[in-house]
Design a protein around this nucleic acid. Structure first.
Length: 419
RNA sequence: GUGGAUGUAGUUCAAUGGCAGAGCACCGGAUUGUGGUUCCGGCUGUUGUGGGUUCGAGUCCCAUCAUCCACCCCA
C-alpha cells in the first residue's frame, strides 16, 4: 500500500459515521437544553496563545504541539485544546455577558497533539467542550459538571465515575506550594528521580507518581484541599452542594491535577476503568484568570472538554449498538434501457417529496437488484419495464413485507408516503 | 519521549525455510421480468515497505512504516 493515514490519525468510514452522529446529537441536545451556543474557532492559532494559556511547563506545550511557521514567518500551532481559543475569542471581540446571564458557548472539532499513539490516544482527535463565561458562582461549575455527566448518561456510557477537586486560586495555591515543597524536601532523597524533578517544576505532580515508595511518602503530605483559602473553600463546598441538589454523583479526589495551567478552584474528571491507560473521558474546571491574562476584561469562567473517540470507544467496548441511520427508502429498478427515462423521472418525483431514491443498474437482473435491496435495508423497490410503461401502472414492492402491488405511476409517491 | 508485541485476500485467521490456503464477505448462475435461506461456480494477494542470508524466504537477519500494550501524558 503506497499511502496510509499518517501516524496517529484515522479515517471515519461510512459504517462508523453513525457512532459520531449518535454522540453529536446528544451533545447538541444538551447544549441546546442549557442554552449554549455553538462557536467555531480556528484550527491553528499563534503559538504564543497556547504557550501562555496552557502553560510553558506543561507536557502539552513542552513536547506535544504541532508548530510551524507560515510563509511570512509567523509562529503558529495546531490547536492542542479548545479553551485557549475560546478565551482568546472572548477577549478579542470583547464578548459581553449580561449581568444576569453568563455567556454560554460550546464547540467541537479536531485537536492535535504529538504524542505516541495508542488506542484512544491519537495525534488528531476530536474534542467537544462547553464554556460558561462570566459567572464566578458555584452553580456555574455545577452546571458544567452536570451537563457533561448527563451527556455521558444519556449516551449510555457504562460505569462513569466523576471525580472533583479544588486546585485553589493563585494565592492559596502559592501558599500551599510552599508548604508542599517543605514537606517534599524533608525526604527529598527518598523520592524517585522524576519526582525530584517534579518538586522543582510542579510539585503537585508528585501526587501522580506511580512509584510505590513515592506514593507512600506522599500519603502524609499536606493536601491542597486542606489548605484552601476561605473563599476557595466556601466555593468548593457550594459546588459539592449544588451537585448534590442536581443529583449528580461524585467523589472528591484530592489528587486530581489537570495538565493545563489555567485552572483555578474547581477541577474535575470523568473516568472509566475499562479503557486501559486511556481512562479519562473528559475533564475541566474553572479558569477565572485566563481571559484577563489574554488581554480581556477580568472574566471568571468554567468549562469542560471531552474526547469523542474515547466516548465512542467506551460504547463499543460495552457492546452498545448504535442506531442505524440513512437507510435508502426507494430503489427504482429499470428493466431494460427503454425504462431509463421513466425511472429517472420517478426518482426525481421522490426527491421532490423528500424521499431518498436511487436508480438501479438497468443492465443487471431484476433478481440481483432485489437482492441489493435486501442487503441495504431498502424499504421499497419500484419496477419499471415494458409492461409498466405500456399500462402506466408501476410495480411497487414492499421489501420488508415481501408484498407487491401495482400503482398508477402518478400515485406511487403518495402511496409510499402513506405506507 | 522510554520499553515490549504484532503486521498474510475486503475481513477473521492458517501455512516445518520448499507450489500462499480456509471461513465470512463480494460477484455470477439455478428455463428469458422478482428476493434475506439453500445449492453450484468464480474472483480476491507485489505476504506493510526496502534491503540482506539462502539453491529456495510469508517463515531467518537488518532497516523502515504502521498498529497494539505498558510507562509517560491526557481526551
Amino acid at each position: 500500500m503506497k499511502y496510509q493515514a499518517p501516524r496517529g490519525t484515522y479515517d471515519i468510514l461510512p459504517e462508523d459515521i453513525k457512532k459520531w452522529h449518535y454522540i453529536e446529537n446528544i451533545i447538541r441536545k444538551f447544549t441546546s437544553l442549557y442554552n449554549y451556543s455553538e462557536v467555531r474557532v480556528p484550527i491553528f492559532e499563534q503559538l504564543d496563545l497556547f504557550q501562555r494559556s496552557v502553560g510553558e511547563d506543561t507536557d502539552i506545550v513542552e513536547k506535544e504541539m504541532y508548530t510551524f511557521k507560515d510563509k511570512k514567518g509567523r509562529q503558529l500551532a495546531l490547536r492542542p485544546e479548545g479553551t485557549a481559543s475560546i478565551a482568546r475569542m472572548v477577549a478579542e471581540h470583547n464578548l459581553q455577558s449580561s449581568k444576569k446571564e453568563p455567556l454560554r458557548l460550546w464547540y467541537e472539532g479536531p485537536m492535535f497533539r504529538y504524542s505516541r499513539p495508542q488506542k484512544g490516544r491519537y495525534r488528531q482527535f476530536c474534542q467537544f467542550g462547553i464554556e460558561c463565561i462570566g459567572s464566578s458562582k458555584p452553580i456555574a461549575d455545577a452546571e458544567i459538571i452536570a451537563i457533561g455527566w448527563q451527556i455521558l448518561q444519556e449516551a449510555k456510557v457504562p460505569d462513569v465515575s466523576l471525580e472533583i477537586n479544588s486546585v485553589g486560586c493563585p494565592e492559596c495555591r502559592e501558599q500551599y506550594n510552599i508548604l508542599l515543597k517543605e514537606f517534599l524536601y524533608r525526604d527529598k532523597d527518598k523520592y524517585c528521580t522524576d519526582c525530584r524533578r517534579r518538586m522543582e517544576q510542579n510539585p503537585l505532580r508528585v501526587f501522580d507518581c506511580k512509584n510505590k515508595i513515592c506514593q507512600q511518602l506522599i500519603n502524609n503530605a499536606p493536601r491542597m484541599l486542606d489548605n484552601l483559602c476561605e473563599e476557595c473553600s466556601i466555593h468548593f463546598d457550594s459546588v459539592k452542594n449544588n451537585l448534590e441538589m442536581m443529583k449528580v454523583p461524585f467523589t472528591v479526589n484530592p489528587e486530581i491535577v489537570r495538565g493545563l495551567d489555567y485552572y483555578t478552584k474547581t477541577a474535575f474528571e470523568y473516568k472509566v476503568n475499562y479503557l486501559g491507560a486511556q481512562d479519562a473521558l473528559g475533564g475541566g474546571g474553572r479558569y477565572d484568570g485566563l481571559i484577563e491574562y489574554l488581554g480581556g476584561k477580568q472574566t471568571p469562567a468554567v468549562g469542560l472538554s471531552m474526547g469523542l473517540e474515547r466516548i465512542i470507544l467506551s460504547l463499543e467496548k460495552s457492546g452498545f449498538s448504535f442506531p442505524e441511520e440513512n437507510n435508502l427508502k426507494v430503489f427504482v429498478i429499470p428493466i431494460g434501457a427503454a425504462a431509463l427515462q421513466a425511472s429517472i423521472e420517478m426518482m426525481q418525483e421522490f426527491h421532490k417529496a423528500d424521499i431518498s431514491a436511487i436508480i438501479a443498474d438497468e443492465s443487471s437482473s431484476v433478481g440481483s437488484n432485489l437482492k441489493c435491496c435486501d442487503k441495504n435495508n431498502v424499504s421499497f423497490a419500484i419496477l419499471i419495464g415494458d409492461n409498466e410503461l405500456k399500462s402506466g401502472m408501476y410495480v411497487v414492492k414492499d421489501i420488508q413485507k415481501k408484498a407487491q402491488s401495482e400503482i398508477k405511476k402518478e400515485e406511487v409517491v403518495s402511496f409510499i408516503k402513506n405506507t
